[in-house]
Amino acid sequence: MVQNKLKLLSVALLAATLSSGCTFIGEHKFTGGGTMASAGGDKNAVFTFNAENCGGDEVKGRVNYVDHSAIDFEDVGGVSLKAQVDNFGYCALTDEGLENGVQECNCMDQFEAQFSYSSKNPQAPGEGTGFVCFFDTGEGKGNFHGAITAFNLIDGPYEGYGNVGTVNGNIQQHSCPETNEAE
């Protein structure tokens, strides 16, 4: 238990060192899905997601992620989860973040979604949190291979799971719906 707390603390300190002052900027909406290399395994990880932060307080989105051959979770049949997006946006170092010592996000100059997940694998039940960082042109035709630069599960049944990789799939950026001033 103490070890776990120390691990979380060290991860938090590391993240703070690298991304202190980073905050989410802008309004964004993405949908997509695809595959990437497994976390050490011989099969691909598969994912689908949608994420929207179009102003106001509401952030919406879902993530489904499966990595059946993740070698550190082989004994429970791999990683399988569904998640709700809690925060999403383009993560950038901002003057406001620096002045206030804020650290909203981990991956500078990339899109990031922070989420709460539920395991779909009965051999590893439970809930936890994590974040995913990626970049892509967002043109969605599948002919640009973007990358997931971090898919980290911080706690819960898959605590410690981490993966990165080139994406083979289709990530589409959408315009945020225009807000109706009269409402």
């Binding site: 383009y90 100059d109 990339q110 970049f135 630069t149 950026q173």
Partner: peptide, 18 residues
Amino acid sequence: TVLVATAFSAQAELVEGT
């Protein structure tokens, strides 16, 4: 983390909307 940062922080600019 450093690898990822050095590998892509300079390449993330292709993203749109910023």
